[in-house]
């Protein structure tokens, strides 16, 4: 059975490392894996999405409406934008960080004030987490991505050590300690 994970956020937030970590972990576990992301224009501060699919045999590289087992969102309204991709019994992990898109900055649109409450009211399984605060606690605001991966790992039937091993393979040596700490903080949140 193929499992589907989406990572969504704002171009430049570091979703690439998160998908690299997942890819490494799942290949090491012996799964067939497909990871799909779009490069180019959207990386300039636009809305970005990465699809990670794994199982015995994976065909399509993309995840469609109602298909994601997990969505990991690096930003609040990006979670809302992609929640239609979530399976009925899926789970969405949301970093509560707010990053204003240009229409909000210039006043032509309003940033929704309570999107998390609305999602919960709709019966969606939402894990809201202040990943930025935990990343800062770990030693770098850039470690948000790994905090969120730590939170995701809680729902995987896979020893924590394997995630740590994958972090060590994917991160530059000087950042391993910060990222391991960020992972633990996310895992224990």
């Amino acid at each position: 059975m193929t499992k589907n994970i989406m990572i969504v956020g704002v171009g430049g937030q570091g979703s690439l490392l998160a998908s690299k970590l997942l890819g490494r972990l799942l290949v090491d576990e012996g799964y067939d894996v497909k990871v799909s992301e779009v490069h180019g224009m959207s990386q300039r501060g636009g809305s970005v999405v990465t699809y990670v699919r794994f199982g015995d045999k994976v065909y399509s590289p993309v995840i469609e409406d109602g298909e994601a087992d997990f969505i990991v969102s690096f930003e609040k309204i990006e979670a809302a934008r992609y929640v239609r991709n979530l399976k009925k019994d899926g789970r969405i992990i949301v970093n509560t960080q707010q990053i204003d898109p240009m229409p909000v900055i210039i006043g032509s649109a309003v940033y929704p004030s309570d999107i998390i409450t609305e999602m919960k009211a709709k019966g969606i399984n939402v894990d809201d987490i202040d990943a930025l605060a935990l990343a800062n606690e770990a030693g770098s605001s850039k470690a948000c991505n790994i905090v969120l991966m730590g939170r995701l790992a809680k729902y995987f039937d896979m020893p924590k050590e394997k995630w740590i091993a994958a972090i060590e393979k994917c991160v530059k040596p000087q950042f391993i300690e910060i990222n391991k700490k960020a992972f633990e903080l996310g895992y224990n949140s």
Binding site: G46, E67, A80, R81, V83, P101, P103, A109, E118
Partner: peptide, 15 residues
């Protein structure tokens, strides 16, 4: 497939 739909308008995020 069943799809969750929200009532709130989500502002676009162009590059």
């Amino acid at each position: 497939k069943t799809v969750f739909a929200l009532d709130t308008d989500i502002p676009v995020r162009p590059p």
